[in-house]
Design a protein around this nucleic acid. Structure first.
Length: 187
DNA sequence: CGGTTTTGACCGGCGC
DNA sequence: GCGCCGGTCAAAACCG
């Protein structure tokens, strides 16, 4: 989503340390008043983020509209320092948020490019969970996608981390508009 | 041929 | 310590 070359401070809120993810709407996420709650479909923001980010506005069968979606957030609050020993550093609890989408397609096009690096069966779901990593070199944002066994038409996507590079797909659609605006601004 | 997916192995955390 | 569970690695397969 936000393709900002954002500085470290994660815009994500801190939550009390209760593990079950809190549910709240994207609009609540964007404003800073977030009270964990399950939202109703009509409390969704009027912004179609997915459509905005996936340059294909309207066409395409991959339109996974975020109808009835709930955002889930867990905090993140840690710096990512220690890499313990030889190799991985995974003590990182970094900004992470999730939302669920009603879509027939597991992976929704959010404008970024992802490479799948794993798939695992999780305990209480009959559908596997897929793990993706952002393909941008300097960006280690991850996401995991899982379809609910409860309601087959819903997929839960969990993002972890913040992209440190612009989403070129979004830029692609935004650039002409910006140029147009600059042109009009001359008058 | 380069990038992506697949898939079993591997590893670390956690509860017992 | 052991085994379960979830996350990641990495080699091979796959695909344009």
């Amino acid at each position: 989503m936000e393709g900002q070359e954002a500085p470290p401070p994660p815009p994500l809120p801190q939550f009390p340390s209760q593990n079950p993810p809190y549910l709240f709407s994207p609009s609540l996420l964007l404003s800073s008043s977030l009270h964990p709650s399950i939202i109703e479909p009509q409390s969704l923001p009027d912004i179609d983020w997915v459509g905005l980010l996936s340059g294909q506005s309207g066409l395409g069968e991959n339109r996974s509209i975020m109808d009835s979606a709930s955002m889930v957030a867990e905090n993140g609050a840690e710096e990512e320092k220690d890499k313990k020993k030889g190799g991985r550093m995974k003590k990182t609890t970094r900004p992470r948020f999730a939302f669920q989408t009603r879509s027939a397609d597991d992976v929704l096009d959010d404008g970024y490019r992802w490479r799948k690096y794993g798939q695992k069966a999780v305990k209480n779901s009959k559908y596997p969970r897929s793990y993706y990593r952002c393909t941008h070199h300097t960006c280690n944002v991850k996401k995991q996608v899982q379809r609910l066994s409860k309601d087959t038409s819903i997929v839960v996507t969990t993002y972890e981390g913040i992209h440190n590079h612009p989403c070129e797909k979004m830029m692609e659609t935004l650039t002409p508009l910006l140029k147009q605006m600059q042109f009009l601004a001359r008058f």
